[in-house]
Design a protein around this nucleic acid. Structure first.
Lengths: 253, 253
DNA sequence: CTTTCCTGTCTTGTATGCAAGATAGCCACA
DNA sequence: TGTGGCTATCTTGCATACAAGACAGGAAAG
């Protein structure tokens, strides 16, 4: 979003810029996406921005409030639960359907987990957020099924938005451990176990959410009043000062 | 598509009309969807038609060939395999995640299976096509998870398009039996078994496809030349004469 | 001081106009 | 007869203009 874009960007670029902004937690839920501003930023007319918005809307990532504007979705508690449920269903189903972990696949996951470790050691939270979500997409990529990858990518984006709204604590190490355990089960060829671990892992993350403090009507009211989203509480300020939108670290897997 | 539409239809209506046309096998893969024609049919400008097309494109139901037109997708053999794989993953994962079959849920499925039986007895193929696909959506609805329902609806639409392209034989009774067995396992509370049966059922249907006769490059070439898709062979003409687009019955679940 | 209403401004919703690529048909020419 | 190229026409791509609702701020009335 705050990138300076030279003009002549294609539609896909608008869409993917916003999605990757969400995947790396640079764009918060409830962010207003003005057609005019985006058109200026990308050097195109409103028409193309609108097309990108409509695509993102069908992907469940933005929504439009008629004649008021486009907003990054702020999933309700019920929607949050549905997203995690959908992820458990799909990711566990996917792992159960796997039969082998190829050498390249194992290597790719190993590289990824090392990247997670590096980002944790470096305290690079933005990258960590991205990597924590990306792990699950990497697993989907192992299946070679582009349909499932796309579905999980969108669900991951929503998951990150949910984390930004409802997550009170951050246990990067716990999530990383969960990923490692899933990987180990896969290496051992025990995909049923990997599926179970995946469900447990998602349960853990979901348990770390506080789905009661932010009832939906309040959230709607707040955005109607154009107030900034309430800061996530109880995360003492250790955030990167150059990114004042980033309210504490996010556990994203 | 051949409905006469009085004007002032909303965007959603364009989208849903096309999707439901596919779900009931009234619209064939490769069908050209002219912006101008649809605009006239629905009494709106091209703008809104384009928006509907873009939404359908992100749902994987239509695609655009630049400056040539919009077309209902003709999934390649590889894509067909991916769709069935995705359905196995999601539907089996969904069934495995279920814990109870409520009374209403059981009743809804029972009603549905009776509708299937009725349509089979009546030889109402269009309705049967719709019902065979709808069974799986009904199961998703039992979970109460709107995300999964939406995903499976779109995959079902693609499945029907695949059937129209590649299916050589029609075993409605076999599919119906598969549905019944899944239902029985669910009633018995054995959801792991239901998941396995669901995978077997989808395997059966996929096996009934002939994914070799229609290699992708040929299909692309054909549509480039604006030739009509090759009729599905070996289905002796028992189709309803009032719908000459309907090339034999379709097994859709 | 409070409330109501009005108006200016900003937003998206929708239609339309024009540009540019793709295609088909025809004609000239070998 | 076959071939190359031109043109007319049809398609989508994209920008723009205008309509109409939502909102904020201020003025006026109580």
């Amino acid at each position: 979003m705050q990138d300076s874009h030279t003009s002549e960007s294609t539609q896909k670029t608008i869409e993917e810029t916003i999605v990757s902004g969400i995947l790396s937690a640079k764009i918060r839920p409830g962010t207003r996406l003005s057609e005019n501003q985006l058109a200026t930023l990308f050097g195109v007319s409103r028409t193309r921005v609108r097309e990108a918005m409509m695509r993102l809307e069908t992907r469940g990532i933005v929504h439009v409030s008629p004649r008021r504007g486009w907003f990054v979705v702020e999933p309700s508690a019920e929607e949050a639960i549905a997203v995690y449920e959908a992820r458990r269903v799909i990711e566990a189903g996917l792992l159960r359907s796997m039969r082998v972990l190829t050498d390249e696949g194992g290597k790719a996951l190993d590289v990824h987990l090392n990247e997670e470790k590096t980002a944790m050691a470096a305290g690079d939270r933005q990258r960590l957020t991205y990597l924590m979500g990306d792990f699950h997409i990497r697993i989907a990529e192992l299946s070679g099924n582009a349909i499932i990858v796309d579905i999980l990518r969108d669900l991951t984006a929503r998951t990150i938005l949910i984390s930004m709204l409802y997550q009170s604590e951050f246990h990067a190490a716990q999530s990383h451990d969960g990923h490692c355990r899933i990987f180990e089960a896969m290496q051992a060829g025990d995909f049923a176990r990997a599926a179970e671990l995946s469900i447990e892992h998602l349960d853990e993350v979901e348990m770390g959410l506080d789905l009661t403090t932010r009832p939906d009507p309040l959230s709607e009211l707040r955005s109607s009043l154009s107030l900034p989203p309430k800061a996530v509480p109880s995360v003492s300020q250790l955030s990167d000062p150059k990114n004042h939108n980033f309210k504490g670290a996010i556990k994203t897997c």
